[in-house]
Design a protein around this nucleic acid. Structure first.
Lengths: 214, 214
DNA sequence: CTTTAAGTAGACCGACTGTTCTAGTGAGGA
DNA sequence: TCCTCACTAGAACAGTCGGTCTACTTAAAG
């Protein structure tokens, strides 16, 4: 079926087919992302996603195996988009001060926390709703957090040496700020995380008088 | 009905009635606490709670208005128990070093994280499953976190002066450690939080030699 | 025009869900 | 003994859920 080899003169068959499929699919994915995050995965019924995205029921089950597949796509999408945003934010902060790297990471979180639908880290929410330790939520949460930690560590390592424990402390501050902002809005958790992170970086990574080994 | 004033010679009527009601109710509350936390609030059906606690359907709806009421009782119970555990742990750590106070708080979290059913902070999980900003989950989460922060601040203030921002940084570390331990098990997030907290306390609250220009 | 394929609209199904209700049980107090 | 009251066991109910299926439309390709 796939190698009948007769439509080689129309090179858009493969790619264009997905392009044509995109509009409806993209609407579906966008509203799924919005609703699954803002109103919860279990709380959001398939019907609500279909209505808000103006997509027919058959389209969903034609493109995805079911709701579980749509959830997995939602998580992957979140991972890709958030990681891209963090990457550009960190790359954009190319000052000499390593603390600016951590600030850039927190800025991404803080700007998101100022949107009305903010409820905290999407992966923490997903794991809370899908307890299975071997399920997609746990998988993507681990993947995402590990990737962000690696990104942060790499960006800092370009400037100073970063012990593993310090990197973990910064991750704890990042996740804690996201969670605290969700649970206790109006408490300036991001600023508190920034202050702690800056102290951690300036004292643990940049001793005031550089020892001979640096 | 309530003031017929004839059974004053049996003073156990009021209290004992609740005592007699306790066994079944306590079984119900204990298994509800266990299941709602470990398997999720929405995921756990009423029937499963009833079966595992060996309690009849009528008992639930006789003592509670419904599942929502049971959930509220679960959250209140978690708040009371956790707050008590944290209180005794902090009181028990009556050394001179203020960092020991924060260590005691983290010890409570870490010991819970070593139980098999650990999934992170129960209130963060509840809020994730019940997005309503004015619902019981958001209420108890705010109440609980605020209480713990106040407890921590008070215990530290007994030893050193504690700026608001530093207290918030410590809360971010605490919540972040609980969340990180849930999302990335085996990463020693508590030790990282302890290190960051100790640094924060010893430098921000106890400057070794108060330099004029620091 | 015919074919192929994707999308739409909506009825429909089985499997749950939380909740109510009825009938019966067993212990303690009057 | 009678009565009360908490509890048990289980049927039954309305509602919602995810998922399947059918009939129709649209549009590009031959």
């Amino acid at each position: 079926m796939t190698q009948t080899g007769e439509a080689e003169n129309t090179p858009q068959t493969g790619v264009e087919r997905q392009q044509r499929r995109k509009p409806g699919l993209e609407r579906l994915l966008a509203t799924a992302d919005e609703l699954l995050y803002a109103e919860g995965i279990q709380q959001t019924g398939v019907q609500r996603i279909l209505e808000q995205s103006n997509v027919a029921r058959g389209t969903l089950y034609g493109n995805f195996g079911g709701k579980d597949d749509l959830i997995a796509a939602y998580l992957q999408r979140r991972h890709t988009h958030t990681l891209a945003a963090v990457t550009t934010a960190i790359e954009h902060a190319h000052s000499d001060d390593p603390a600016d790297v951590f600030d850039a990471l927190l800025d991404v979180g803080e700007s998101r926390s100022q949107q009305g639908s903010f409820r905290g880290c999407a992966f923490a929410l997903a794991v809370a709703e899908m307890p299975a330790a071997d399920g997609p939520a746990a998988h993507w949460a681990r993947t995402h957090k590990t990737a962000i930690k690696a990104l942060l560590k790499q960006a800092l390592t370009g400037r100073v040496a970063v012990p593993e424990r310090t990197a973990e402390s910064l991750m704890v501050l990042y996740d804690g700020a996201l969670l605290s902002a969700a649970l206790r809005p109006g408490e300036d958790s991001f600023e508190a995380a920034r202050a702690a992170g800056r102290l951690l970086i300036t004292t643990a990574l940049l001793p005031p008088d550089p020892a001979p080994g640096s």
